[in-house]
Nucleic acid binder design. Structure first.
Lengths: 360, 360
DNA sequence: CTGAAAGCGCTAACAC
DNA sequence: GTGTTAGCGCTTTCAG
């Protein structure tokens, strides 16, 4: 709090050393615990630091050391509750471990992704996390080739450390569970799969389940639309409204699966505003279990995949990578939240090895 | 793409200089456009850079220059769609302007806030943004005293550059509008106001409106609860369910105002699950206009305050601060999205100078 | 336990 | 147009 130098200008370790009557290296040692410092000296240094309101310059430190203690996080799209919560957990872990986080949002664009990656490389981040990515393999490979530790979150790419959810098994199990409960016509509405590996797994599990249950093509309504990559509810709403209008009741799916809760809500909305009922006419199940899902009318059945757990696991894995420890990919377990939009008995869920999400 | 040095180790400007047969300063000039470089030399340098896959070290640059081209963003709580979207717009602007963003989430805690601020100061950020803060005046003042440019977003603090929304006028106007439409008993459910200036303004405008309309105390139901600072829907739901059970119909509010859409949905949920109707028995109006609001059943009337506009304005203001230009505080205009949970004729809204949010 | 000196990678004077 | 050199603030040998 003592008078600072001109704006921007701050005191250096030399100023502290002079004030404390020791050498800069001793101050450095005291600051970092690099070598023992006598209690007396320590105290004088502490006083000087407090007196000058000295703050070490982390950029200078990063320049000198091999590590910057910066990690970079690149998201496919930060502007959803789900990924925001994931980031929140990463930020917390980082703060605890004295890392600082450079965040970047590619919002689905390859060029933005490349520029973001370049910026992080220039800052000499100690490691990077790619969360929920999309058609950006080149960027990832280039980071890897530059020798920068990296981790992929909520996706999988051969040869890279990953944290994934068990999308395939979950979807497959849910299909079986609803089949057992008497459902015979199934629908899916979601984004184009393209390079989104997590969505591919979901859809793969879905189809596998249908195959195993002997559901024929005419009893499947499948719509993968690129519009959903941008907006969520509006396109889902419009698309499904149109579909309902054009399709006789006997043909339309008894249950709709969707790629996230926003899309699910769009579908529900379409059903209700078309004068039909959820779940009696069409049941709907979402993904992500966003916080509002429980309170919607009807409440939305959803697949929960804990974003905090995701962030946490990514952080752990990245730390291991940075410290050159052996790592194994992490598979996190999704849980099924059964609510009004697609009701089901708990035992139906658990029979297929799925975990039930219990409301608090 | 040529073989990199050992992991982490990268080529320097000297390597590029040697490869191109020029001096480091020429490379620097070529890189930064600091001085004219002959086309031939430029080309040789470009080749060398490409050949070595050279990336400048931004930390070294930051050490040497007066600016780090890092900005710090500290959020009260990043884990909501609203603030995530605000961050998204900041990230985009930053990328365009060649800044890099260190993000921090205080999640309402003073100690976390302090540690975050310290970390950003160590990195010598060129400026900081405090978005949606809370009881952290000391941190802000200390940053200011350290001579670091800063901006406050979605809040106001005397003496600091701020970007705010017109909370007071909006709330006041809405009260009048609903009064005109015949409503006589008003309620408010939200977080404790404490140091949250934006909430204080909202509540202040609310009370002012009621006073002007001559609404007596017994026709006001006001609940400011600290539980809402943590969860949103669950506590709102529980609280309002309890309230409804304990309160005779003639006394309960005809319209409930709430501090955000999550709370609004909690209230709506409580009303519906108590066997009452929205809006016939209790109308409900939220805040933030999150993307799902339009698609809930009933759709939620809400006050829209564009998070992208907020982020953008904060970024602009911070740039001005950094470049020592004169700045004026920015007041952004909220818009009222009228939907089923609290219907109202458009002219009622516009009569009080409020802007109507038109659905796309 | 403490100090002197070199150097991390870059830019900015200032020569040429 | 280009090169030489010093130094940003720190850590790290290596002596003492």
């Amino acid at each position: 709090m003592t008078g600072n130098p001109a704006a921007g200008k701050r005191y250096t370790i030399y100023d502290v050393a002079k004030e404390a009557g020791v050498s800069p290296s001793t101050v450095s040692n005291a600051l970092n615990g690099t070598a023992r410092v006598s209690p007396k000296t320590q105290q004088r240094i502490d006083q000087a630091i407090a007196h000058l309101d000295y703050t070490p310059n982390a950029n200078a430190r990063a320049l000198r050391k091999t590590s910057s203690r910066i990690i970079g996080v690149i998201l496919r799209d930060i502007s959803s509750e789900y990924y925001a919560q994931c980031v929140a957990s990463i930020l917390q872990r980082a703060l605890d471990e004295d890392y600082v986080v450079l965040t970047s949002d590619a919002h689905f664009r390859q060029d933005v992704m490349e520029k973001s990656v370049a910026a992080l490389v220039e800052r000499r981040v100690d490691g990077m996390m790619f969360i929920g990515g999309h058609s950006d393999e080149d960027s990832i490979r280039s980071v890897h080739e530059a020798g920068i530790p990296l981790v992929l979150g909520d996706r999988y790419l051969e040869g890279f450390p990953c944290v994934q959810f068990n999308n395939y098994d979950t979807m497959r199990g849910i299909v079986h569970a609803f089949y057992d409960a008497g459902y015979r016509r199934f629908g899916y509405l979601g984004e184009m799969l393209m390079n989104q590996q997590n969505l591919q797994m979901r859809f793969g599990g879905f189809e596998r389940g249908l195959d195993e249950c002997g559901i024929s093509d005419e009893n499947r309504y499948i719509s993968l639309t690129e519009y959903l990559n941008v907006g969520k509810m509006q396109p889902a709403y419009e698309q499904f409204t149109k579909y309902l209008r054009a399709t006789p009741p006997k043909i339309r799916p008894q249950i709709m699966f969707s790629s996230n809760d926003m899309v699910a809500q769009g579908i529900i909305s379409a059903v209700l505003r078309s004068g039909l009922r959820v779940p009696e006419d069409v049941a709907v199940i979402g993904f992500d279990n966003i916080s509002i899902a429980k309170y919607c009318t009807p409440s939305i059945s959803s697949v929960e995949q804990d974003p905090y757990q995701l962030g946490d696991a990514c952080f752990n894995l990245l730390m291991q990578q940075i410290h050159h420890r052996e790592t194994e990919n992490i598979m996190l377990t999704q849980r099924v939240a059964i609510r009004s939009s697609a009701p089901l008995a708990a035992e139906n869920i658990e029979r297929y090895g799925l975990q039930l999400y219990e409301e608090e």
